[in-house]
């Protein structure tokens, strides 16, 4: 059994007033500490190339989609958020998506589609805001997902850098 002896209070502590003043001085000092609050809608969120936002489809400078509707991302998606229907095309890549839908309410922003894509067509953008009035409006179709490559370039460069580092280290060992 442990017997905890109560500490004898000093006179200043028993008077209580000095301790109150000490407490007040602490709260007064806190009043002048710099706030960490970010006023969200006015001050937008800070995003970097590491930010893993919502997936978007890269569009080449000539306006064509990179996606060949191979279905790798569809298969990789753990949340079954992606639905793809493809068809053949005269373009050199031979196939392109006819229907490409991501249900943003199902998407968990894991980035597996980005990893799975063999054609560098789907990327995690820095877009984070997701709000609408109906569930249907949040099933994004091809038109809503298209983004020019330039908008996704920082992310593309970053992922390539990461992958290169991984390749060189494994090849040397």
């Amino acid at each position: 059994m442990v017997i905890v002896k109560r500490k004898e209070l000093t006179l200043a502590e028993r008077l209580y007033l000095p301790e109150i003043l000490r407490g007040l001085s602490i709260t007064l000092r806190k009043m002048f500490v710099k706030r960490a609050t970010r006023q969200y809608p006015e001050e937008p969120l800070v995003t970097t190339e590491v930010t893993r936002g919502q997936p978007r489809l890269a569009v080449n400078t000539d306006g064509t989609v990179r996606c060949v509707s191979c279905g790798m991302c569809e298969a990789a998606c753990p949340a079954y958020a992606i639905t793809i229907d493809g068809h053949e095309t005269e373009r050199p890549i031979e196939r392109e998506p006819e229907r490409f839908e991501i249900d943003m309410l199902r998407c968990i922003l894991c980035g597996f589609c980005e990893e799975a894509c063999p054609k560098e067509a789907i990327w995690m953008s820095d877009e984070l805001e997701l709000a609408d009035y109906t569930r249907g409006a949040l099933v994004y179709d091809l038109e809503k997902l298209k983004r020019p490559v330039s908008a996704l370039q920082p992310r593309i460069d970053y992922i390539k850098k990461i992958n290169d580092r991984w390749r060189t280290s494994s090849s040397t060992s």
Partner: peptide
């Protein structure tokens, strides 16, 4: 004042 003491911004 309560907000300032608690490191918040308060009504704004």
């Amino acid at each position: 004042v309560s907000a300032w003491i608690q490191l918040r911004l308060g009504p704004n």
